[in-house]
Design a protein around this nucleic acid. Structure first.
Length: 336
RNA sequence: GCAAUGGUCAGUCUA
């Protein structure tokens, strides 16, 4: 049984649901762990209906679901997004007397928050006793995701006031939502917490800081932060190049683009999109075309529709409406 | 003492 559940988990983690299911089927007996692992796999790998189906089957065999099972099922409900289903599973959690389990309750908060049922998320949050940083983050990012950024910020300060230490996820979530409500002051205050809590060298936090300064502060600050980061991922580079584009500084965008490759980092489709948008803002047709070709020919990047959008935008901006139209027509025929 | 569980990262538009 133990070997079986480890195997199922292993296949799930490699994204091989069929193999996982085969192993599950081949087992002579099942317990709550093997069921939960399989359900979690389907929930994680975007097959929420199948996960729910398995959950029903499990109950038909008179097996008691536990906290692990419910977390997986709650995640599936969050993906499906049907409020009735969410409430039903929630009530089953209560029936199984799991409403004191912080992990399960956080998953419930997250489920309601993700599906935009913010009132239910709040109610659940308030009814719990042991809220931890994950519970808070789930509530905060749910608000941010559904356009309630002010409320999300309020929750964040409330959390700090209650003495909860933010972690790198909470900090980067909050930093990312600052620009959307032009909350530069709050962004700077959050930056201070980042330093205080020792997360300044975290990769996710670093990306969020660069993005925050680029979008609601000025490009200089963003560049300074960027230069001081210890670690940079493709996303970090992408963020700073987009920042340059937004501030209409294509020279810098190109410089970063080249620096990135000098440092052994490979640009991906998003990086090229950032670069192309810099040319689009600046109206530089030749450069745009040059890099567009470079992307296809030298970097083997799969061209995304967004690349074409940016190119159409660029041609249109400079009055090459005929070229823009040709491009659109070509795309129209290709899409058939 | 030994198996499975919760919250974040990149552009544009989102009326």
């Amino acid at each position: 049984l133990i070997v079986g559940s480890v195997l199922i988990d292993l296949y799930v983690k490699c994204g091989r649901l069929e193999e996982a299911f085969t192993v599950f089927h081949g087992l002579t007996s099942h317990n709550v762990v093997t069921w939960s692992t399989l359900i979690a796999g389907y929930a994680q790998l975007e097959h929420p209906e199948a996960a729910l189906h398995l959950f029903v089957q499990m109950q038909q065999r008179d097996l008691q679901p536990n906290g692990f099972t419910f977390v997986a099922v709650l995640k599936a409900c969050a993906t499906i997004g049907d409020l009735e289903g969410c409430r039903l599973v929630h009530s089953q959690v209560v029936e199984n007397e799991l409403e004191t389990d912080t992990v399960v309750c956080s998953a419930i908060v997250d489920m309601y928050a993700k599906t935009g049922n913010l009132d239910d998320a709040h109610a659940m949050f308030d009814s719990m006793v042991g809220q931890d940083i994950v519970t808070w983050s789930a509530l905060i990012s749910g608000h941010a995701k559904h356009g309630q950024c002010q409320e999300a910020l309020k929750l964040f300060w409330e959390m700090l006031q209650k003495g909860m230490m933010p972690d790198y996820i909470a900090l980067s979530t909050v930093l990312q939502l600052c620009p959307s409500v032009a909350a530069f002051e709050q962004g700077i205050m959050t930056h201070m917490h980042v330093i205080e809590c020792g997360f300044a060298s975290d990769l996710f936090v670093g990306n969020a800081l660069v993005g925050m300064y680029a979008q609601c502060g000025n490009l200089e600050d963003a560049c300074t932060i960027f230069e001081h980061l210890h670690r940079r991922s493709v996303l970090t580079w992408c963020t700073i190049i987009f920042g340059c584009a937004q501030h209409n500084d294509f020279t810098r965008a190109v410089t970063y683009f080249e620096d990135m490759q000098q440092g052994g980092m490979k640009p991906n489709g998003m990086t090229f999109l950032a670069l192309l948008s810099a040319f689009s803002y600046a109206g530089l047709v030749e450069e745009g075309v040059y890099y567009f070709k470079l992307m296809k020919e030298a970097h083997d990047v799969v061209v995304m529709p967004e690349h074409f959008n940016t190119m159409v935008d660029l041609f249109g901006r400079r009055g090459f409406l005929d070229v823009a139209e040709d491009l659109l027509e070509t795309l129209y025929f290709q899409s058939d």
